[in-house]
Structure formats: structure tokens, C-alpha cells
């Protein structure tokens, strides 16, 4: 036996396989009339509070389920349980969710008949931006306590998102945060970002956010008959 070497050219994204699986997942959800929304933010920006406010607004109307990722505890799932079917995905230290975890969480909730599936990723503005979870839309939540200089520091997270929620508007009088500056910085990175300044605590701006959800679902899933409130 002799050995020799051979160079094989490839030119493939290492996440190609995962992207194909994510596409299958999204089409499967779409076939069931479910719009999949992926929420990312730094820890404490208010993803869970946003979902509580969303569920309050939709109460009796649009139906939603939540998969919530955290490194540890089921605290977020406990907060959301009164409002919606929810499965906690504990990652045991991993800094982001991947599709197999999402699929496992969803299986726990089946049979499921909802209009929206929210996937709340681990609080982290870095890793979650690289992983396609089969979402229709990625939403980045930025809160006024984090500072308006954050978009430029996390370009991938903002570039790969379709919508920006600016949370904790109620704290605006107490913090040095300019909504305009944050939006300008974010839109330098992703000009197409839809922006929703709101307060999940006072419900200011929640109606516009929920309106966006309903319209995106109608637009992307071609179903204008979904319940609105």
C-alpha cells in the first residue's frame, strides 16, 4: 500500500445541513398555519415580559405557544405557563439554541393548534445570531437600560434580524438612551428593520407589535382569517 494526498474543493457553508433542516421545519410549521418567531436579546432585556404582554393582548384571540431557552431553571416557563402552552429548553450551559432542541421542546407540546410559535433564545447577542431555528422572522429585543450604542457592537445579531423591539420605554426618563440614536445605529446595519418601541410593563406600544405579528402571519402564510384583537 502507498499513500498520496488529494485536495478536494468544497466551498460549502458548514451550517448548510442545519439550514436545510431549518427550512424543512419552517415549511412544516407553515403547513400548519404556524408563524415561527425567534426572539433574541441580551439577558434581562425583557423577552419573557414581552411574551407575557403579547399573550395578555392576544388573550381570547390569537393562539400562541412558547419554547423558552435558558441555561438553567424553569423560571421563564413558569411565568408564561398561565398564558400559553410553554416548554422550557434548558441547554445545560450551551450559549444558544439549535433546531434539535426546538424540535424536542415542540414534541412535548404536541398536539398543538396555535397561530404563533415563539422561540425565546438564551439571553446572548452573539451565538444565537448564527443559528437558524426555522423561524419566519427573527426579532431582536433591546432595552433602554442597555444603552443606545449596542447595535454597532453586535452587527451580526442586528443584520440577521427582521424586527427590532425597543423595550422598557417606561424607564426612558431615568436612563441616558435615545430611541432615535439606537434606531439609526441599528438601521445602518439592517436598513429593513421594522422597529417597535414599547414597554412590556405598561403595555405602551404592545398593540402595534401585536398588529405586526398578525399582519406578518397573514402576509407570509397567506391566511387573512386569523384572529385579531
Amino acid at each position: 500500500m502507498a499513500t498520496f494526498s488529494k485536495v478536494v474543493s468544497v466551498g460549502r457553508d458548514v451550517l448548510d445541513g442545519a439550514a436545510a433542516d431549518a427550512g424543512d421545519f419552517r415549511r412544516r410549521m407553515q403547513g400548519r398555519g404556524i408563524l415561527v418567531m425567534h426572539l433574541i436579546s441580551s439577558p434581562g432585556a425583557g423577552k419573557t415580559s414581552l411574551l407575557e404582554a403579547t399573550a395578555r393582548h392576544f388573550a381570547g384571540g390569537a393562539r400562541m405557544a412558547v419554547l423558552v431557552g435558558d441555561i438553567a431553571t424553569t423560571r421563564d416557563a413558569q411565568r408564561l405557563a398561565p398564558w400559553a402552552p410553554v416548554a422550557q429548553l434548558t441547554t445545560g450551559g450551551a450559549c444558544h439554541l439549535e433546531l434539535p432542541l426546538v424540535e424536542r421542546g415542540l414534541a412535548q407540546l404536541e398536539p398543538l393548534d396555535v397561530e404563533f410559535l415563539f422561540i425565546e433564545d438564551v439571553g446572548n447577542l452573539v451565538c444565537p445570531a448564527s443559528h437558524n431555528l426555522g423561524q419566519h422572522r427573527r426579532v431582536i429585543v433591546l432595552s433602554t437600560t442597555e444603552g443606545d450604542d449596542k447595535p454597532g457592537k453586535y452587527p451580526k445579531a442586528f443584520r440577521t434580524s427582521e424586527a427590532l423591539v425597543i423595550n422598557k420605554l417606561d424607564l426612558l426618563p431615568h436612563v441616558p438612551f435615545s430611541v432615535e440614536a439606537a434606531v439609526e445605529d441599528a438601521r445602518r446595519i439592517q436598513p429593513a428593520l421594522e422597529v417597535f418601541p414599547l414597554s412590556a410593563k405598561t403595555d405602551e406600544g404592545i398593540a402595534a407589535w401585536c398588529n405586526y405579528l398578525t399582519h406578518e402571519r397573514a402576509r407570509l402564510l397567506g391566511d387573512i382569517g386569523c384572529t385579531t384583537t
Partner: peptide, 20 residues
């Protein structure tokens, strides 16, 4: 964006064992 936004596997050099 068309480059610099993903991790791309460009090529692999393999050692092949061949029968003489």
C-alpha cells in the same frame, strides 16, 4: 452579503491509501 458572513469549508486535503 456574499462573503465573510459564514464559515465556509473551502477544501480538504486527504491522505489516500492506494493499492500498489
Amino acid at each position: 452579503t456574499i462573503d465573510g458572513d459564514a464559515v465556509i469549508l473551502e477544501s480538504v486535503e486527504f491522505a489516500l491509501a492506494v493499492n500498489e
